[in-house]
Amino acid sequence: MRILAAMSGGVDSAVAAARAVEAGHDVTGVHLALSRAGGTLRTGSRGCCTIEDAMDARRTADLLGIPFYVWDFSERFRDDVIDDFISEYKAGRTPNPCLRCNEKIKFAALLERALELGFDAVCTGHYAHLVSTVTGLELHRAADDAKDQSYVLGVLNAEQLAHTYFPLGETPSKALVRAEAAERGITVAQKPDSHDICFIPDGDTRGWLAEKVGTATGEIVDREGAVVGSHEGAHAFTVGQRRGLYLGVPAPDGKPRFVLEVRPVTNTVVVGPKEALAIAEIAGERFSWAGAAPVDAEFACEVQIRAHADPVPARAFVTEEGVRVIPDEPLNGVAPGQSAVLYVGTRVLGQFTIDTTVSAVPIGA
């Protein structure tokens, strides 16, 4: 196959590209420039897609003896990921920019260009693997639970899966990938993993949003509507947050309060006891299936609401309005804007963006 290897400059994508070459594929490497402010170098393990990362990717491509290019996707990244991130926070939602990047950039914009240029598939260093069945390809969890990335790939559809190549999915551990990189002479064998949001490399999401959205004084209220504090912008808060509330009125029982809801229209933040974070039901209108859609409109599954959260057994209901999920036990601290990924065993069924939640603890209880 003609393979376009997306090379971030990290060890995972480097080994993935090396394995694609070793498997006999015709491989070309590409690094995506996602920011036009490219003068920064990476600091420690924060951020990604910097000049340093592009140079690391090029060195690996040279070692493998494959063609290498840098493609400027900064405008598309700004429109589809950064602007979406800002608008979601302004709407009182908690987005997942890594999932959106996979959906809009790596497996949409990049894959579209790859197919236009005659490539058969895009290769990445994601930890997940594909299984071919009589009904088509299925997306499954990686062999290494600690590194499994199937959650952020839950947005991929059947057509995208058909042109995707995950060489690392069945590798038992990240340590083996690093050891293999060292054996191959890949210079990034011990390079730290990136974390945090790549376009906020200092990790100060609150400060970054304040610069982009601005500040506006608003009220912090309890579940009954009583004012217990104030803030400088509702966008700076997310469901489940405990720190940085600076409440002027203590709770009657003296226990800590947590953010339960963000209301952007009134610039209000709702707080309450930890118990009220328990969610009995979630639903969303925007959904997609990773491969063949479920046969039945109601089915048993497991639902996962964060990249490294434990899956929870649940019942899902699919209608023309969207997907509704009732977990067997309450979910904790779910925020609108998060993605709920549905599994059956190791298989990813699909995902939806959470629009509404129903608390397991009624007001006044």
Rank of each mutant, 00 (worst) to 15 (best):
G125L: 04
W71L: 12
L41N: 14
T164C: 14
E275T: 15
V344Y: 03
V303I: 15
G322W: 08
C49N: 07
A91F: 00
A210K: 12
G65W: 13
R257Q: 10
V348A: 01
R19I: 13
A234W: 07
V30F: 06
R223A: 15
E302W: 05
E88K: 08
F287G: 04
H25E: 04
G284P: 05
A6V: 11
S74L: 06
Q241F: 09
A278M: 12
E320Y: 04
A23D: 15
N102V: 05
D193P: 04
L331A: 05
S194F: 02
L209S: 10
R286K: 01
C198Q: 07
V341Y: 04
P252I: 11
T266R: 12
V361M: 09
V334N: 10
P256K: 03
T217C: 11
F166M: 12
G10Y: 02
I279W: 01
D83P: 02
I197S: 10
V131Y: 09
L63P: 09
P250W: 00
A234L: 06
V134Q: 13
L117W: 01
D193M: 09
Y89P: 11
S74I: 08
G225L: 11
R223N: 11
A142V: 13
I279K: 05
I105T: 02
V303W: 11
T28S: 13
R78G: 07
F73G: 01
C123D: 02
E159R: 14
Q338G: 02
L161A: 12
H140P: 05
A360R: 03
A5R: 05
A293V: 08
R36Y: 05
V122L: 13
P336N: 00
T40N: 04
V325L: 05
R100F: 02
V239M: 15
R243A: 15
S35P: 07
A210H: 09
Q338S: 03
F258H: 15
E170Q: 09
K106F: 04
D144M: 09
A189V: 00
P311V: 12
A216K: 11
L41H: 13
V70W: 03
H140S: 10
E224W: 14
S339H: 08
P336Q: 02
G214C: 07
S339C: 11
T133P: 02
F85L: 12
S230I: 13
T124M: 08
V249F: 01
G214L: 09
I51N: 08
D79W: 08
E232A: 09
T205P: 03
V265M: 14
E285V: 05
L99A: 11
D193C: 05
S74K: 00
V177P: 00
R46I: 10
T94N: 15
D62I: 00
I326K: 10
